[in-house]
């Protein structure tokens, strides 16, 4: 589904990704872990098409297409979803409008008709219950005045509504208390399926207690230094990141 080969990216003159290789197949959950500044969020941003990042080498293939050549909205319509580390507050654009416009854009791409207001609302209500969000959120501005936890839940609500093929969750666990983490994880787990791939970008292994990954990768200084299964995350929890770097230097 997703194939990243030798990806190099920089912001201005600062090189951040220095040859990332990663293959993700449908149904898989990958966790990308790493210390601060290792390039985790840059990788997520490059996949979603955020401006300001220059890809200097490498390719990203998504469902047989050159992902890097696609506009951000075309990626979204093709089933790529980024849950933001810092969801943006947009006063005056209401949540219901955004959900509906986003869903209809995706449905159009899939060759489906637009949902009418009734079907849309009943579907969104169900998903809001799952995320334990009050319906009043619908009429509020996008993320406007939301707490940190509410913003993260809202991201997963959008993901649940849009049903992406590839979801990239950028530090979705950061700033969450244990209850919110459970709600967000439940939401993500409910979206696990054989057709959907999920890439979790996280600093802490705590999230992986709730969302069990099939693969764990350690990103450090712009490269994936080590890959393994769930047990790698537990080892990182115990030993930190330094030993991976030392091991890589020796190798």
């Amino acid at each position: 589904m997703l194939s990243i080969r030798d990806l190099h990216a920089q912001i201005g003159a600062r090189k951040i990704l220095k040859g990332v290789n990663l293959a993700v197949r449908p149904g898989e959950v990958h966790a990308i872990m790493g210390p601060n500044g290792s390039g985790k969020s840059t990788l997520a941003s490059v996949l979603a098409g955020r401006e300001g990042y220059e890809v200097t080498r490498g390719t990203v293939e998504y469902l047989g297409r050159d992902l890097l050549a696609m506009e951000p909205e075309d990626r979204a319509r093709a089933g790529v979803f980024l849950a933001f580390q810092y969801p943006v507050e947009i006063p005056g654009v209401n949540n219901a409008y955004l959900l509906k416009a986003a869903l209809n854009a995706v449905r159009k791409q899939r060759g489906e008709s637009e949902l009418d207001a009734f079907d849309f609302l009943s579907m969104v209500r169900d998903k809001m219950k799952l995320m334990q969000m009050d319906e009043s959120f619908l009429s509020r501005g996008v993320n406007e005045g939301f707490s940190g936890g509410e913003k993260k839940r809202n991201e997963i609500l959008q993901m649940a509504v849009l049903e992406p093929k590839l979801a990239v969750l950028d530090e979705t666990d950061s700033g969450l208390d244990i209850d919110a983490l459970r709600v967000v994880s439940n939401g993500v787990n409910s979206l696990r399926s054989g057709e959907r791939a999920i890439v979790l970008v996280t600093h802490y292994q705590r999230l992986l207690d709730y969302i069990e990954p099939d693969y764990v990768h350690v990103l450090s200084d712009g490269r994936i230094l080590k890959s393994g299964d769930r047990s790698l995350a537990l080892e990182l929890e115990k030993r930190g990141y330094d030993w991976v770097r030392q091991e890589a230097q020796v190798a």
């Binding site: 005056g92 955004l98 416009a101 996008v142």
Partner: peptide
């Protein structure tokens, strides 16, 4: 905000329009 809206599938024009109206 523009990128956020586009990352949800709104075109650049739709995103600009939504923000200008807001």
């Amino acid at each position: 905000a523009l990128f956020y809206l586009r990352s949800r599938g709104l075109t650049a024009v739709e995103a600009r329009s939504a923000l200008t109206r807001a």
